[in-house]
């Protein structure tokens, strides 16, 4: 165990543990936009930055990825530099996604109500946190979507911007998206997502549409649970 201070409060942590987890355990509030406990960290959004003082230097790090070590002396979660980075990131994201309530709310906390930049009109609410891609790859295990392009024009998309054979229409990407950017619509027994149409299965007991047939087939194949069982919705099982 290692002892150091966060904003003047003595904390204890295991070596190798991430600063974000330690700080949150001790009740410090650190915002995140690309971190999820099921997915781990990616270091994309940069709003979780904190300032770390070690024996040698003081520097800004992303708390989600910075491992605790014996060298840490003190951590500051609200220093001037920390606030500058967070405020800047949120202002930039607000200019990118002016429609996003989540970003608007977080930006307001740092005093930003209107960005000083020309607002983007073509990015929707996507902040490129990559959580949908990581969920699809690491949790669902199908890798139906990925990042295409680079720089400001980076986008999340199925390959070649076409309906993907790999997508099972599970909607896990929608569930994990922090800003509600990903479009999914269930209507008349059909689910539309990522340019692909899915037939929804009807629960034989209650008669409601509950999941794409393709998703149930995928689960059946993976778990060897027969389709008949899976066709029954989770409420009626």
């Amino acid at each position: 165990m290692v002892k150091f201070k966060i904003d003047n409060k003595v904390v204890e942590a295991k070596e190798g543990e991430y600063l974000l987890d330690v700080a949150r355990r001790y009740g410090f509030s650190i915002p995140t936009l690309c971190h999820h406990e099921a997915l781990g960290s990616d270091g994309r959004c940069r709003v979780c930055v904190v300032e770390v003082k070690t024996r040698w230097r003081k520097r800004i790090v992303t708390s989600c990825l910075f491992p605790v070590s014996k060298d840490i002396e003190e951590v500051y979660t609200a220093s001037e530099d920390v606030k500058l980075v967070r405020r800047t990131v949120l202002e930039l994201l607000l200019a990118r996604c002016p429609e996003s309530d989540v970003i608007r709310y977080m930006a307001a906390k740092y005093g930003i109500t209107e960005p000083r930049y020309k607002k983007d009109t073509d990015k929707g609410k996507c902040i490129l946190c990559n959580m949908c891609v990581r969920t699809c790859e690491n949790i669902v295990g199908v890798s139906a979507i990925g990042i295409i392009g680079k720089g400001p024009e980076k986008k999340i998309s199925p390959p070649f911007r076409e309906a993907s054979d790999a997508c099972i229409g599970c909607g896990a990407c929608v569930a994990v998206c922090p800003t509600g950017h990903i479009f999914m619509e269930d209507k008349d027994g059909i689910r539309l997502i990522w340019r692909k149409r899915f037939e929804l299965a009807v629960c034989p007991k209650c008669g409601r549409y509950h999941a794409p047939v393709e998703q149930l087939e995928f689960i059946s194949k993976k778990t060897n649970v027969p389709m008949e069982e899976l066709l029954v919705c989770t409420n009626c099982r």
Binding site: R44, R46, V85, L92, Y117, I127, G149, G151, K154
Partner: peptide, 18 residues
């Protein structure tokens, strides 16, 4: 640099563009 930013993190992707 705007062209060559990989676009992974926000400050570089959005900040350099601005």
């Amino acid at each position: 640099l705007v062209e060559e930013s990989c676009g992974k993190c926000v400050p570089c992707r959005e900040g350099v563009k601005r």
